[in-house]
Write a protein that binds this DNA or RNA. Sequence first.
RNA 1: AGCGGGGUAGGCCAGCCUGGUAGGCCGCGGGGCUCAUAACCCCGAGGUCCCCGGUUCAAAUCCGGGCCCCGCUACCA
Length: 567
Amino acid sequence: MKYVVGSAWPYVQTVPHLGNMIGSVLSADVYARYLRLRGHDVVFISGSDMHGTPIEVEAIQLGVSPHEYAERMHKIVAELFKRWDISFDLYTHTHTDTHVKFVQEFYRKVYENNYIFHKEEEIPYCPNDGIYLPDRFVVGKCPHCGYERARGDQCENCGRLLDPRQLVEPKCAICNGAPIWRLTRHWYLDLKKLEDKVREYVEKNPHLPPAAREMSLAMLREGLKPRAVTRDNKWGIPAPFPGAEDKTIYVWFEAVLGYISAVIELTTSRGDSEGWKKYWTEQDTRIVFFVGKDNVPFHVVILPALLIAAGGYTMPTTTASTEFLMYEGDKFSKSRRWGIWIDEALQLLPPDYWRFVLIYIRPENRDANFTWTAALEIINKVMNDDVGNYVNRVLTLAKRHVGGVPPEGSPTELEIDFWSRVYKLFKDAERYYDAIELKNALHAVVEIAREGNRYLNARAPWDLYKRNVEEANAVLHYAYRSLKLLAAGLAPITPRVVEKLWSAMGQTTQLTWEEAQRPPTPGAPLGDVKPLFRKISEEEARELLRRLEEIRAKKSTAKYPWEQVIL
RNA sequence: AGCGGGGUAGGCCAGCCUGGUAGGCCGCGGGGCUCAUAACCCCGAGGUCCCCGGUUCAAAUCCGGGCCCCGCUACCA
């Protein structure tokens, strides 16, 4: 089966934090790695979302061009993903020639198919900064409660939705100057016209997670309203509509098309400029997106609507979303410096540790809370004591008593029972991976090690070797086979460690999901047996955090955001 | 306000769709083992499954009402 795995395109204004990571990029990577292990044809892509008002504004404030700003941040984020062992086939960005050209052609088609219309409206404009202001960039006194710093879209104090025109004494959020209202023309996507087809897509799609489905159907019940696809920004992709020469495409509406343009870029770079069609126009492709829950409507409703409007594309199979991750009981917040960002994380622990912990607590049904107490518990108790120590027990015993991969010996009913239990857990993990319930998959895999620990205690091969070598061999043989299952089950999550494990097991073939289930070659020599993980004491964690604070303090004085990143 | 999610032992969470003696991990008390990363295994204590009402022989699980927490609400990525 062919798969396109896409993770939400990170906005390059800042480096992602752990919550962003688990929602999109890391989850997508785990799934993509799993699919590859199963032998599927996988294209795993994403890229930086380079355009948009916040970047334009911030660049202007810093006195650099938006292009330079975005380009620098993109390079850093791409490098960080590499260090997190994210196995992108391509991590690109939205300012490539391929993307720009594709987006323009795409919207030309949508236009020709009569899904675009334009109308005039008055938009706040800041004469000082020379830009049109999004609602949030206009602040002023709330007409309802008198709160002074109400934003143009909503008052934080009383929670009421606002229109920037309602604000008393409106000001530009950037320079505090008074905005003026200017008549401008915008081009709209006629979502109303697409509503029935989108509803059919959502209703007939058996793969969508219930929550995403509900949210989308609720939106459809209310009725889709036309949405402007153009903006007056300079930093963006020029709109291809007649008369829209000075407009750009709204970032939301072009970044999502990156899922297609990135595949084009990828296959083209492999010398096959038409190869992308295999993935995006043929029906036997599964297209799966990974996003945080805030992103669901866009991927389940708007992007499918766009694909229908342009015509000729394969419809996305599903969108796997997560709830949010909190940090020590509170929302991640850049301004309050609350949370851990992905550059900082790597200063504290190796990527496999983070990957394991984050997947272990992945917010699948509800918001989850990252706490250091819990993280250390998972690292020390689960990763080390349950998994790492089990591996070490089996391999040490095998090395000592057999000197290689244990032969099948004379298995008793106990061995067969054990094998059927761990094999069932492996199949559970498989089912969970298939359903993109990554947290449950990992929990099932960990259970293999727990089962193994129980088994070793019950069978006590160290003792059995004194009485019945054949039977003792059988115990180690099946324990060894459980390690193969464990390796495959963990491979998508902790790829680096599994590589070490696989070679410690003396395996020379490529690890695949199939291979993991086959019996090993008895007598094959084992590799170096060393603990897979190590524990992190509370004191060490405290020390690491203290050092992080120091680095943060030093970095926060840097002028440019890309200088604040810890590499 | 509307929409979505959630309220299960001291902590974190699974179970809820497909009703039937309330599970797991950590922590705590006791024991076992000694191959292993002072690890592992067993036993035990600890719960009005937010509240009220309904359906049912039977409800954490289905239905109605209420209270509390969180997120989203589409020109924020």
